[in-house]
Write a protein that binds this DNA or RNA. Structure first.
Lengths: 235, 235
DNA sequence: AAAGATGTTAACAGCTTGTTAATTTGATTA
DNA sequence: TAATCAAATTAACAAGCTGTTAACATCTTT
């Protein structure tokens, strides 16, 4: 009864966003069912059990609020996250916020969504038996999710296993995202000592990490000559 | 969970000033939401989470104090910085200063604002999870922000990467803003030795720095013949 | 006008880093 | 304990970057 994936119903009509979110949520180990409008969403909901719904508010045929009303008739406690445009009046959202609900305004970062999901599941975990509560140490950058606890670098394409040193180095870079870390600081933190050979070793690991992250062009490990390295993420 | 940008709500009706501030705050790595009057500001505030509000006091439709009152009803602890004209009676400001607030009178320097923001965030960091605490070494001059820690010279247009020597020399100039530094002092500080060739080398670096800062006419590195250099900033 | 100081560009040498492969070290299993 | 496999380090060479120097132009002072 444990280790079963949490099931998310995602109803979103914009195909670009929905595909992106689906991929991303699956990287986070959720089981995602994707629907592209409110009616389809309602059909799905009646036919399968879900732990969480993520509903776009603005949709053709049936908007997110109407769908949420229906869903609530059937299941009073299932948590819902609304995706709304920034300009939207928030009267209705406020009404909903009484329940185990939340909303997130577009555009949002994937990390932000991840945090909201965790929060809402935590709050309302009544009834979900198979939830995993263990605190994982994860870092999000670019299109990657770096699961330090399990030494996995997850991307859409694959899960790259990391060695201890690789993971440690990547963690250090993540903790200093977009900031320069000096060579000596890396060496002292990870190798405990700063000499020529450890320095060369570090360079080898930087090469390895660069290979792992090269599939995302928005992310790179840059060198500042004579000084150190930086994990650069373009927004 | 960390490294997320701090979100600032900026409400200011003067378009010139607001654009300038927006650019500047973004250069400082804050995420800025700009509103041009109190009502718009209130809408934004209700729809998004912010870590800090910067409110102009004198605004059409809804002034900064009224807006702050409303904001405080919803969030008792969010820090607010008021922008006021010098002539303004400060009775009301005094009233507000009880909270986690501050005010700054126009005209103010961007650096001054930066310092206030840092101070106020430091004071009230309760609840802000993703704050970055590490002390960065930055210098402000003209329209530039010189991030010595990351060896970056930031301007509206671009981020110029600096080499170690360039950064060191620029730092020395910044520390002596509008003051003459003698050649021998620069040479001894940065090169450790004062001979003819290092002197020529320094001149080359001065040329390089001049190139980097030439986009801002209010800033220049001037030479005092036979004596040294000065980083001059016009107000 | 002459001498020295500074401005500027380009080229070079030396050092740092990137990368791949070989070797050593360490951990796991039979 | 030996055999095996994975990980980390070292080696070797290529590529890149930086600081210095040289060369020449321009400016300042006397």
């Amino acid at each position: 009864m444990k280790n079963k994936k949490i099931e998310i119903l995602l109803v979103e009509d914009d195909p670009n966003l929905s595909m992106l979110l689906e991929d991303y949520l699956e990287m986070l180990d959720y089981k995602v069912t994707l629907c592209s409008d409110g009616e389809e969403g309602w059909n799905c909901f009646t036919q399968n059990p879900f732990d969480l719904c993520i509903l776009d508010v603005m949709m053709p045929k049936k908007d997110g609020f109407t769908l949420a009303d229906q869903i609530r008739e059937k299941d009073k406690h299932i948590p819902v996250i609304f995706l709304t445009a920034k300009s939207l009046k928030e009267d209705r959202i406020k009404g909903f916020k009484i329940g185990c609900d939340d909303y997130i305004t577009k555009p949002f970062s994937t990390e932000e969504l991840s945090l909201r999901i965790q929060a809402i599941l935590k709050r309302s975990k009544t009834g979900i038996v198979h939830i995993e509560v263990d605190q994982q140490e994860t870092y999000h950058f670019g299109s990657f999710i770096f699961d330090y606890t399990n030494m996995l670098l997850k991307s859409k394409k694959e899960n790259q296993k990391l060695t201890k040193k690789e993971a440690h180095l990547l963690k250090l870079l993540c903790l200093n995202k977009n900031k320069l870390i000096r060579r000596e600081q890396i060496l002292e933190t990870i190798w405990g000592e700063n000499d020529y050979f450890f320095g060369r070793s570090m360079d080898v690991f930087i090469t390895k990490l660069r290979k792992y992250i090269k599939e995302d062009n928005a992310v790179q490990i840059t060198n500042v000559h004579g000084t150190g390295f930086k994990l650069e993420i373009e927004d």
